[in-house]
Design a protein around this nucleic acid. Structure first.
Lengths: 351, 351
DNA sequence: AACTCGAATGAAAACGTTTACATTCATCTT
DNA sequence: AAGATGAATGTAAACGTTTTCATTCGAGTT
């Protein structure tokens, strides 16, 4: 049987209360007994039981991160940001992913009760009705990229609209008029906002560009297909703005196969600035989302909500994006990677 | 105050015992009372408290993954594999990372007591002495890529040695004799094993190649530096085998800058098969590690150890690697990506 | 009709902590 | 010297579950 606080108390010849006090660094314990207790604890390899502690203190020192997926560069970076901020505060991280249907998501949320002090939640199911039924009551929660705030939780989004708007503007300012767009999945909020940013930026060009607005699903293959379709159109678009980098990558290989030069024959831009973007040839112009910072910020807000439960935390917060202009959209800056061109904070040192 | 099982009992007019039984699907509860209880629970939005439940059942339905880092393609993929296998079994995942020093790692391990049913452990500190002191006693644990098994825990490794050996052989078989190697960090076990595989495969060529064995740290920049140094040597190496793909990437840009063609002037190979590898120009020959599978396998073994605590689980298990020959090492297979050349199962559908 | 049996239910202990409160005891005040 | 003070320590309740064991009660057996 595992060694408990009682065993330590017995070994040190004191009560469990004193052991608890000593171990938690309370000051009202004599130097002498403190030493005795610590020695006994060390000797017995005592480790406090987290469940028991959580039960009585109502604190778990853990935050839950419920994400739609753990897959790929985006979530890796997101988790990294969350983890960074969490461990800076001595918090553990309980991750959960892939809730295909609402029932599964509901079960996950309910299972969080008593296991976490707060929740970071990113899921398509996060509407007000769903949350009010399935979110453990009084559990501080931060919504990430949810459809819209439910009015009672902190709420963070990436400025997808602004980023797409800025990139579209940039392409227009570069002189392109027929600017194609490759959309993301229709039910994806990021995708919707990026599309909206693109359309709104177009202004007078909107009607002219509408035929060039292609479907896509964020996967490389759909970018490839869209590019093939675009190459077949007359007049051909002068620039292609893909709603994410993976689709831009698909475009690029379609262009390469067809012998179409980027950016000379056609300009290309993506969204996300995944690690690969700067290594592509030509290097990909894109919209950088500081995902790790996004995660950090979300956690910071969550901790704030945990520490001040009585305040109102329902405010929305938008994470800015930044334009990263490399060579694929053709302004002529053939920037060498080892010269300018800040590296993305990703792709680590492990194998 | 949060609603507890008592509130449900009161509302349904039964004892807490019956509520517990009903909620856990025991069969010895009348149809009628079952309905009453379920309705009361639904109505009150009752969610069981995980801590309380864990305390009494001694099960948390959670497994801990203690990793050196969460950063980059490798860990993203690893976590994905672990998560996949975990959620298939209804287990939650508590992740923890970045233990720069042994003390921090120790604290993390100790904090797992009572929070997890088992531990997946990947850390340079995992030697027998450290574990015996800091691992919660009787906590099922699977060591991943640890220096060596401590004789009492399940132990998984990637076949770094075999992979490096095979790639080196392949380069030799392709006719190269002066084969350079770029090492990983000296204290990294993967790096050591890859170096060993390289050296052992060389055989008679070992002495000749020794000057071409360059230091590195798994980062792109060190690959770049190593490549510059190699280009300055006479005679120049005919092939460069980098201990991971990121360093190979660094090599490639050094070669590009110097106008040295790959593979015509010099062959190049990496290790890991990160998502980027197949998109490089030329596409990178490398050693594929099925990281997600590695994670899945580790979790499967852990679950086995949890479910059969009395069996012996100290056996070692080696995950095989596979050679992925693309164009960078010059056998002439200018394989198009959209033709053959299986995609790596990574880089997801989210932005 | 008395008795046995088994199923449904309830009472209470247990899990391993923390902490409010009570107790002890040395020291200080008068 | 007696009482007040306050620090160190101990006792026991509490956290929210599950589960053992006892109890009740109706149905079946004789």
């Amino acid at each position: 049987m595992a060694v408990t606080i009682k065993d330590v108390a017995k070994a040190a010849g004191v009560s469990v209360a004193s052991v608890s006090r000593a171990l938690n660094g309370h000051d009202n314990v004599t130097r002498d007994t403190y030493e005795r207790i610590m020695q006994a604890a060390r000797q017995l390899h005592y480790m406090p039981n987290g469940a028991a502690r959580s039960l009585i203190t109502r604190r778990t020192q853990t935050i839950g991160a419920v994400l739609p997926d753990l897959h790929g560069a985006f979530f890796s970076e997101l988790i990294r940001g969350i983890d960074l901020a969490a461990r800076a505060r001595g918090l553990h991280l309980l991750v959960s992913s892939s809730h295909d249907n609402a029932d599964e998501a509901a079960a996950t949320l309910r299972a969080m009760r008593g296991r976490v002090d707060g929740l970071l939640l990113m899921t398509p199911h996060a509407n007000a009705g769903f949350l009010s039924v399935n979110l453990p009551p009084a559990l501080p929660t931060v919504l990430m990229n949810a459809g819209s705030g439910d009015g009672s939780h902190a709420w963070l989004t990436v400025d997808n609209h602004g980023g797409a708007h800025a990139m579209t503007r940039h392409l227009m300012d570069s002189g392109y008029r027929r600017i194609a767009f490759i959309r993301g999945p229709d039910n994806n909020l990021d995708a919707q906002e990026r599309l909206r940013g693109y359309r709104e930026a177009l202004g007078d060009l909107a009607a002219e560009c509408e035929p060039y607005c292609m479907p896509g699903d964020f996967l490389e293959s759909s970018g490839y297909r869209a590019a093939r379709a675009l190459l077949g159109m007359t007049p051909r678009p002068q620039a292609v703005f893909a709603a994410n980098d993976m689709m831009a990558l698909g475009c690029l290989s379609a262009f390469n196969e067809a012998g179409v030069k980027v950016p000379a024959d056609i300009a290309l831009a993506g969204f996300d600035d995944i690690p690969m973007a700067r290594f592509m040839t030509p290097s990909l112009s894109t919209v950088r989302v500081r995902i790790a910072e996004f995660g950090e910020r979300a956690l910071a807000r969550l901790v704030d909500a945990i520490e001040h439960p009585d305040d109102v935390h329902a405010a929305e917060e938008v994470m800015p994006t930044e334009l990263v202009i490399r060579t694929s959209c053709g302004v002529g800056t053939t920037s060498s990677r080892h010269a300018g061109n800040a590296p993305t904070p990703t792709e680590g040192r492990h194998p």
